[in-house]
Each structure stands twice: as C-alpha cells, then as structure tokens.
Design a protein around this nucleic acid. Sequence first.
DNA 1: GTAAATAGTTAGACTAGACTAACAATTATT
DNA 2: AATAATTGTTAGTCTAGTCTAACTATTTAC
Lengths: 217, 217
Amino acid sequence: MNSLNEENYLKALLNLSLADGEVNVKDLSKHLNIKMPSVTSMMKKMAEKGWVHYESYKPLRLTEQGKKEAALIIRKHRLTEMFLVEKMGFRWDEVHDIAEQIEHVKAPEFFAKMDELLEFPKFDPHGSPIPDKNGTLVWATWVKLSECEPGDEVKIVAVTKSSEEFLKFLNSREIALGLEMTIISIEPFDKSMVVRYKNHEAETLSATVCERLLVSK
Amino acid sequence: MNSLNEENYLKALLNLSLADGEVNVKDLSKHLNIKMPSVTSMMKKMAEKGWVHYESYKPLRLTEQGKKEAALIIRKHRLTEMFLVEKMGFRWDEVHDIAEQIEHVKAPEFFAKMDELLEFPKFDPHGSPIPDKNGTLVWATWVKLSECEPGDEVKIVAVTKSSEEFLKFLNSREIALGLEMTIISIEPFDKSMVVRYKNHEAETLSATVCERLLVSK
DNA sequence: GTAAATAGTTAGACTAGACTAACAATTATT
DNA sequence: AATAATTGTTAGTCTAGTCTAACTATTTAC
Ligand SMILES: [Mn+2]
Ligand SMILES: [Mn+2]
Ligand SMILES: [Mn+2]
Ligand SMILES: [Mn+2]
C-alpha cells in the first residue's frame, strides 16, 4: 500500500516530467516544498519499489510502473474535481485543494461510482484529460493561445498551471472552457494579445495568460 | 492542526465513553488495535493539548474541548455516510469504511456543501444522530429492542455497533430503518425474540441482534 | 582550462508514532 | 491478609519522513 507521501512524490514526478520525462531533484524539491536531501532519500526508496530510475547525479525518470501509479492518482484527483463541480455545485476555482486530499482515499468503489454518476468523463473542469482505469494518460494535441496568430478564431479547451488566482482572473474576464474568441492583434514588445469574444470587444491578455490557455482552432 | 492519528484517538475515546464518560487504556488499545504503551504515550500528548484528563492509573476522560473536537469529526463521518447513501446511491452497509477516510479531509466548505445538499440531516443512514456545527451531540432516547415486551409494537429507528456483516444480515431479513414490527414472544432461556413484520410472519432474532436494534414504541 | 556557481549527496539529528520487554500498581480470588 | 491476575507504565528500539551542515560532482563563465 502506497503512503500518502509516496503518492505526492509520484504525482509531482509525473506533473514535472511532461516534456522529456526527466525531472531534476531541484525542481521536485521546489515543487513539493521539501529539501533536496529528503527528496534524494525518498527517490532511493522509490527506486527500490520500482517506481523511479535513480542514478546518482542523473535526472530522475519514472518507470512504467511509476507512471501508471501516478496516473491512477491523477485520475482520482481529476474525477473528484469533476464530481465537485458537476454534482456538488462548486466552481472550478474551488475544487483543487479538496481533490488534493480526496485523491488519497483508498476505495475503488467510491471513484468508480463518481465515474459512473458523471457518465465516464474524459476531461476535468480545467480541460485536463482524465487518465483511464489502466493509468493511460493521453494529452490532447491542443495548442497554446500564445502560439496563435492575429485573425485566428479559437476555442478555449483547457487551462494549464491553473492556480486559484489564475482561475479567478479568468472568471473576472468571463473566460471559461468552450469560449470562442478572435485574435485581433499581438503587441510585439511584450507579446500581449488583444482579443474579442462575447461582449468583450477588445480585451488585452498578457503573455503569461496566453501561455496558460490551450485552444483549438 | 490535528493529525489523522490524533483524530482517530479522539473518535475512539468518544465512542467508548458513552456510558459514564470513562475509558480504560485497555479498551482503547483494543478498539484502535494499538498496543497499550503506545496508547499511554499518546494520552500524555493529548493531555498536553488539553483534550483528555490523564492521571496515571486512572481512567481516561475527554475534556470539554476534546469532546467537541471528537464530535466534529463524527459529524464529518456521519454527514459523509449520509451523502454516500442519499446522493451517490451506496447501500448503508457500504459506506462506513469510505467515510472513515473522508472524515479526515480538512475542507469545511466541502462538508458544509454536503450538509446543504442533504438539507441539514439530523441522523445518519444507521439512525445515529449527526452532531451540529458546534460539536453538540444529543443521543435520542431510544430503547433497545431487547428491552421490549411481547405484544409491543415498535419501529426501528437506529442500529448500534453496525458492522458490515450485521447490516448485511439485516438486509437479508429485510430489516431497515423505519420498519415497524410486533413482538410475538421472547424465548426465556436465550432471550431470543420472535417478531412479525411485513410479510415475515415469525422471524427469530437472537439476543445479540436485539441488543443492537434501537426502537421507538 | 581553471574558477565559480549550481545541483546533488552523505552524515547525523529530530519528531511522530508505533513496538517489545520488563516492571509497578490495582483489582480479584482465595 | 496473601497471592494471583489484570491493567497500566517505563525504558529502550524501530521506521517513515523530515531537517541542517558539510562535502562532492557537474555545469557555466571567463
Ligand atoms: Mn487539480
Ligand atoms: Mn484540474
Ligand atoms: Mn460509520
Ligand atoms: Mn453510521
């Protein structure tokens, strides 16, 4: 049985390894708010368990087993977020911290029931994909808003690095999943975008914001 | 912030102290499946925190503070059980172990929302009272079925010591909360009861069972 | 290519919470 | 009252998981 701490390390490892599958001790340490020596010793333990490939001074990599374990926790997290929003009436900016705790509940029936009541959702309230029961996680091939061109008509499909403050900012601008917008112009010097949607004729979005919005064209 | 372990001790203390408010180290140890020396040392720690009165070789007693903390956890447990049954479609014999985990979630909004969606229930699916937000717990003045007489017409209002096996036994006999039954006779030598209800003309219930069913007349 | 900066590891200490073995107090039995 | 059984405590050990201080390897800068 995996401990709560091990589960948090697994999740962090998967979240940080989306690019090339490699994770630095430093980044993991920062992400978990745990000092580097503690991280090193946990990595040795998790290597014993067959969840990470660990070699001194080399970057960390999850094993296939480790990826699967991690994805199954993320599955519980995202199903919970979806349940909280769809069945309990929470807003998308309220659910992360609650799900952060409930994801550690050991009761397959509980998550199976959520899944069923939600009719087997594929995405969470922030547009992130929900891994399937086997721990298979497919990231859809969305593109960042920041990579689009003036004139493009796009639809918001997901939000990355969705902190509570960021989600509240989006709420305040009436930006939500499914929203369609047109890119009017891009400011060359700071890469901010001016966009049009609904009754917002010319809203300016900073590069930071555009980096975190995923869209389909 | 109270740790998960402390919370389990608190709950056990309250559950075991319903009679005179006193709890033995032995009983607590057995209930929690933790050896006596570990219990003693935790009691010293909890005495420091102001949750129990502890004196060497004397029975344990919760302080007012301790009772309140304990009741608030039991509140979360019972609200959760009710939510699982009423809003998620679990049976009453399936919910205890799940609630046992969710009761430790630190997110007042989450339990407040359950409470609201359930329209502020006063009892859990087993008929046990749900403590209020201030940690006040009132046990209704129900009477045990075992204390009733032949000829009495009673209604089942709660189930105590409701293990999964016991609840499944009740399911198999179609006994549920709200059921009305008439006591036909009591076998003098083993105190078993013969009762009539619904289409059950003469069902025999052992003394063990009758001890655990609470009724109103 | 050496020096400085950064990243990672080792060693050793600490806390929470468990355990066993040995001992002490209390309660029950004769 | 003396003895036996039961209950509770003390002392010391262990594991998981964290930390700081000191050291080492790797990377970056000149
Ligand atoms: Mn989340
Ligand atoms: Mn999410
Ligand atoms: Mn219960
Ligand atoms: Mn209950």
